[in-house]
Design a protein around this nucleic acid. Structure first.
Length: 583
DNA sequence: TATGCGCGCGCG
DNA sequence: AAAGCGCGCGCGCATA
């Protein structure tokens, strides 16, 4: 098999599909070739025990195309120091399919921090396909836009071997060889779909997210370990007690548990929280719930512990993987860390502090703004607590007499009815999420009063219903122009998409603007470490905390202002040593 | 022994 | 009736 042909020999071959670089001299030659270019197409192949993790895996090849035949740099041979090539790569526009992945590795291994624009063809594909089930991997995109069949199977081959196989080098070269064509096709499609604006937003955001993912979030591992041990012991104790009552079943098996409960005379169809609440034997239900709570806490603590590297957790925030434009977060998911003691485990290292800011009641405010509901807008502008206001309206009492329970009910009412919840749904939701008992008749009354009071909201729902029914409506858009393609057929999912997407999506657009602005304004030594839908967490030096707090609030207000000038937004924030305590 | 799926549940 | 929406994850369990 032909291997590692010397650079010069290959270059003289006119039909060469790639130019392989295995030495520092070769690296300099690449730098010379690229010095005059005003952009390049990149791809990396990785290997190792975990080839997808920038801290555990390694880069084998860096493939670069800038006009001519692709260069394939064997970084295992040259070392990770990119030399002059690094500074060139950092300042010119780069085009990558799944840039977050490649840049994560280049950031972690080669210290590359791109300053120039990063165009990600996967992001472009995702923006075009939002709402559909079309795949956005490179092979699918090439097939769809250029009709090209990429030879597959080698992506998962061993890229750590002594010598790279001819097939592997061909594969690496092919990955970038078609990127210019793909970019052209995607650019045309993006313009045709008027997705330029949101593409610009996502493009500007990419380097910010590379930094967040590379920075990680410091944690108190000892405290996490304590929680795991204590909650784990509680769970096994609770499990023993319940087993004595229900027979030697596995408490973690819904199937076994359901059968045991039915055998014990309980009238339940499922073992979820809602079903347990309705059981005659409340003590039995409480025992099961106590087991589940402890089990969940112990599991979350353990999941987080497994992801700690050198005292920090490096999650992957992904700005373009949801159908609305919100972030997702995985491995681990920091967007569902239980409130309470688990959040106390996310900390600022010695000499540093956390700044935590969030948009106050963002979805209600955004809905009021989008629906132009005058009553809601007026309430927000007057600084009235909207949950209390809604409680007063639906219960027909003065705001001054609204109790804590009334307010709980109103939260369920606001959040549920906003997105089209039925009276029956409201009964279930109020009970399950807020512990409020409600008859269906009562729920109907509340629903009627709610929409009579918030007439703008009702008109907006009716408009969305008409659009859902229309054969001329194909998508829902956010204010930044993000497009979600609607499903065909059943009108209900079309309706909920039309209501939900502009609200959630525009809120996401706004916080993305804020992240970009904030990233550009933060002082030396301050880093964004997390973003949780309506919240931004920044770690900074103690002496900078007050300044960073003001800066973060301002950036969040500015981010919203650029997009939805008259949305009655407010930002709350605080400073603390832990995520849970910074309020 | 690996993979896919549904359940149940954490968050906004 | 897919009659609130948006996620990711660990588990049990069925299947290959």
């Amino acid at each position: 098999m032909e291997l590692k042909t010397p650079v010069r020999a290959v270059r003289e071959e006119s039909k060469a599909r790639y130019r392989l670089v295995t030495s520092r001299d070769g690296l300099n030659e690449v730098a010379q070739d690229l010095a005059g270019k005003n952009g390049m197409f990149l791809d990396v192949e990785t290997y190792g025990q975990n080839a997808l993790d920038p801290r555990l895996g390694d880069i084998r090849t860096l493939t670069i195309k800038a006009g001519g035949i692709p260069w394939i740099i064997d970084l295992k041979a040259t070392g990770y120091d990119l030399g002059p090539l690094g500074s060139i790569m950092a300042r010119v526009p780069v085009v990558i399919h799944n840039a977050l992945f490649d840049l994560g590795f280049l950031r972690a291994k080669c210290g590359l921090i791109p300053q120039g624009p990063i165009l990600c063809t996967m992001v472009m594909s995702r923006l075009l396909n939002l709402g559909t089930n079309n795949a956005n991997d490179l092979a699918s995109a090439l097939k769809h836009h250029l009709g090209i069949d990429l030879p597959k199977g080698l992506a998962k081959s061993d890229w750590g071997g002594m010598l790279l196989l001819d097939e592997q080098l061909d594969y690496a070269a092919a990955d970038v060889a078609h990127l210019p064509g793909l970019l052209k096709a995607l650019t045309t499609a993006t313009k045709a779909a008027t997705l330029n604006g949101v593409l610009r937003l996502e493009t500007d955001l990419l380097p910010v997210i590379v930094e967040i993912n590379a920075t990680g979030f410091a944690v108190d591992t000892a405290r996490l370990g304590d929680i795991k041990a204590r909650a784990g012991a509680q769970a096994s104790e609770a499990s023993k007690v319940m087993q004595a009552r229900l027979g030697g079943i596995n408490m973690a098996s819904p199937k076994q548990l359901l059968k045991a409960l039915q055998d014990a005379g309980q009238n339940v169809e499922s073992t979820d929280n809602e079903a347990l609440q309705s059981m005659k034997d409340a003590e039995l239900a409480a025992g099961i719930i106590a087991f589940r709570d402890a089990q969940k806490l112990a599991q979350q603590a353990e999941t987080l512990l497994k992801k700690v590297h050198n005292g920090r957790i490096y999650a992957t925030f992904d700005p373009t993987s949801t159908r609305t434009g919100r972030f997702s977060c995985k491995e681990p998911n920091l967007q569902n860390v239980a409130r309470g003691e688990l959040r106390e485990c996310f900390i600022a290292p010695p000499g540093r502090l956390l700044v935590v800011c969030d948009y106050s009641q963002i979805e209600l405010r955004m809905a009021a703004f989008i629906a132009k509901d005058e009553r809601m807008l007026a309430a927000f502008k007057a600084g009235i607590d909207l949950h209390a206001a809604t409680a007063a309206i639906v219960l027909g009492k003065p705001v001054g007499e609204v109790t804590k329970d009334d307010r709980q009910l109103a939260k369920a009412v606001n959040f549920g009815l906003l997105y089209g919840q039925s009276a029956r749904g409201l009964v279930r939701y109020a009970k399950a999420s807020y512990g409020v008992e409600l008859s269906e008749k009562r729920a109907h009354e509340i629903r009627d009063r709610f929409f009579r009071a918030y007439a703008g909201l009702q008109r907006w729902h009716r408009r969305c219903m008409d659009l859902a029914n229309s054969h001329e409506t194909f998508d829902a858009r956010t204010l930044a122009g993000r497009r979600r393609i609607l499903p065909e057929g059943n009108m209900w999912p079309r309706f909920t998409d039309l209501v939900n997407t502009p609200v959630q999506g525009t809120s996401a657009d706004a916080i993305k603007h804020a992240l970009i602005l904030l990233h550009g304004r933060l002082p030396e030594g301050a880093h964004i470490v997390a973003t949780i839908h309506d919240e931004i967490v920044v770690e900074c030096r103690e002496q900078d905390a007050e300044e960073v707090l003001a800066m973060t609030k301002t950036a969040m207000l500015d981010g919203m202002k650029q997009l939805a000038k008259d949305c009655p937004v407010e930002v709350e924030g605080g400073i603390g040593k832990t995520w849970g305590s910074a309020k």
